[in-house]
Structure formats: structure tokens, C-alpha cells
């Protein structure tokens, strides 16, 4: 059963076709990777799914939270609406809130689930206090989960790169997603963190019942972790299939694997 589906999604920037006829499916509980050389259109695909860009052509569907049988057309919806439907993401070029603490970064991401209205919150209605307390407990649990609890009061951007990546994941989880999009989570991580990432991603998938879409250049991780892989090159999907199939695919080896394996 698909939780996410794109139908011939195409994104043009002037003359550049960044993504062309992307037909991607994500099944419930799957971990699917998108790979491809630099500029292949991977991040653009994420941006179309999350509403940052409206696809020039094609459609994007997501399974409704209550009733997973029905697919909702989310093409061109506002990013915040799409997030509240259960799609959360991290960014390739980390985008944490620089003037906020680690804890505040995670708390912020629960704001969309807040029921209290503005004045109720400012006046300090008991209901708001209860919600704020829940948010804090939940945020600390998430920080605990990604191993950042002890840094809760530090400025988010003062953390080392690898920790910032994990903080971005915790923040994305705080929006209570059912689908998680990770854009190069291993970039900037040290070898130890990279090694742990595979296990970590699997674990959060199980714990939070997620379906995960992942962009990654690190082939070891991709091959270990993915149920299926899509390969993009110049915006076109040149192959898709299980890791074994991709590794054996001539076109992929020509376009990508052969040359990019050295990083």
C-alpha cells in the first residue's frame, strides 16, 4: 500500500529540467533511497513533495493519516499544510534555527500540533500549560532518542555538524510525521556516526512507524539500508529496483556508481 506517490512529476527552472517525469512510490514502512550524481534533481524532488516548489507538470499524492486507503492530491499545497499531513524533512544544507536552543528547535516543530489559541497561550490558560508540558516532555524524549539530551540548552548552531544532523532529525520527528524525507543525513558525520546511521534510521522507522525516503551519496549506507532505490541522472529516472538490481545495472554503473564511489 503506497503512502506516497508521484505521477510524472516534472520541475522546470527556465530551460533547465531539474526533474523529469518522476514516478516514485513509497510503500508503508519502506526505506527507499534516491541516488544520483550532483545536480541530478534529488533535492528538487524533495522540494516538490514538500511543497517548496509546485511541480510544473504531474501530481503528488499522499495517503491520508486516518484512512490510508485514500490518496490525497497534495500538488502545489503550502509546505506547512503538507507537513501537517504527516510529511517531515531534513535539509541537505542544515537549516536549524540559529538563535534558538537545541530544545527550542525541537519544541518549535510541535507547534503545528498545538491546540491552544494565541491569547490562551499568552494568558497562560491551564490547557496551554498542559500542552506546553507535554511538548517539553516529548521534545526531551526525542532529544534523548537521538542522543542530544545533554545539549538541550545549547545554541543549536554551536553543535558539531553530525549532531546538527541528528537534531534536524529530532526536529522533523517532533512534527509527528508518517513519512520522513532525509536529504543526505550522513554528510558531515564522522565515520563512527556514519556507521551508526544505518541502524539508527532503521530503528526510528520501527519506533515511529515511518516510511522513509532518503537521499544519500554514501553507497555503503544506501545499499545496506534501502529496500528499494531510484537512480536519477539529469532529472531522468534511469533505474529503480532493489540494491542488488541497482548494483548490477549497466546504466547506473556508467552514469554514477563507477565514478562517484570514491567519495
Amino acid at each position: 500500500m503506497s503512502v506516497l506517490k508521484t505521477e510524472n512529476a516534472t520541475m522546470r527552472f527556465g530551460g533547465v529540467v531539474a526533474v523529469e517525469n518522476l514516478n516514485l512510490q513509497l510503500e508503508k514502512g519502506e526505506i527507499v533511497a534516491i541516488i544520483g550524481p550532483n545536480g541530478a534533481g534529488k533535492t528538487t524532488a524533495f522540494n516538490m513533495i514538500t511543497g517548496v516548489y509546485t511541480p510544473t507538470e504531474g501530481k503528488i499524492f499522499v495517503a491520508a493519516k486516518e484512512d490510508e486507503e485514500t490518496l490525497i492530491d497534495i500538488t502545489g499545497r503550502r509546505p506547512d499544510r503538507i507537513t501537517s499531513l504527516g510529511i517531515a524533512r531534513t535539509f541537505q544544507n542544515i537549516r536549524l534555527f540559529g538563535q534558538m536552543t537545541v530544545l527550542e528547535n525541537v519544541l518549535l516543530a510541535s507547534h503545528l500540533r498545538l491546540k491552544s489559541k494565541f491569547f490562551g497561550a499568552v494568558i497562560g490558560w491551564p490547557h496551554y500549560h498542559k500542552e506546553e508540558k507535554q511538548m517539553r516532555i516529548h521534545a526531551m524524549e526525542l532529544l534523548e532518542r537521538v542522543g542530544l539530551a545533554e545539549f538541550w540548552d545549547e545554541q543549536a548552531t554551536s553543535l558539531p555538524y553530525g549532531k546538527q544532523r541528528r537534531l534536524e532529525i529530532a526536529r522533523a520527528l517532533a512534527t509527528e510525521p508518517s513519512i520522513l524525507l532525509l536529504d543526505e543525513p550522513a554528510a558531515g558525520m564522522n565515520p563512527k556516526e556514519t556507521l551508526e546511521l544505518t541502524e539508527f534510521v532503521r530503528n526510528i522507522r520501527d519506533e515511529f512507524q515511518l516510511s522513509i525516503l532518503l537521499i544519500e551519496h554514501h553507497m555503503q549506507i544506501v545499499m545496506d539500508i534501502s529496500d528499494r532505490i531510484y537512480v536519477l541522472d539529469f532529472g531522468k529516472t534511469i533505474a529503480s529496483g532493489t540494491p542488488a538490481e541497482i548494483q548490477a545495472n549497466e546504466r547506473v554503473i556508467d552514469a554514477y556508481l563507477g565514478v562517484a564511489d570514491d567519495d
Binding site: 514538500t50 517548496v52 503550502r78 509546505p79 506547512d80 507537513t83 501537517s84 517531515a88 524533512r89 535539509f91 537549516r95 536549524l96 534555527f97 540559529g98 538563535q99 534558538m100 527550542e104 519544541l107 518549535l108 516543530a109 510541535s110 507547534h111 503545528l112 498545538l114 491552544s116 494565541f118 497561550a121 499568552v122 500542552e131 506546553e132 511538548m135 526536529r171 522533523a172 517532533a174 512534527t175
Partner: peptide
């Protein structure tokens, strides 16, 4: 939480919108 939302918009509106 609303105050945090204001600050988040100031710090990075794209990330804020992506967080809902």
C-alpha cells in the same frame, strides 16, 4: 509556543514553514 514560532520565522522562514 507562538513566540518561538515568530523567532523561527525570523531565523529561517523556509525551515519554519517546513516544520508546519
Amino acid at each position: 509556543s507562538y513566540g518561538r514560532a515568530f523567532k523561527a520565522i525570523r531565523d529561517d522562514d523556509i525551515a519554519a514553514e517546513a516544520m508546519g
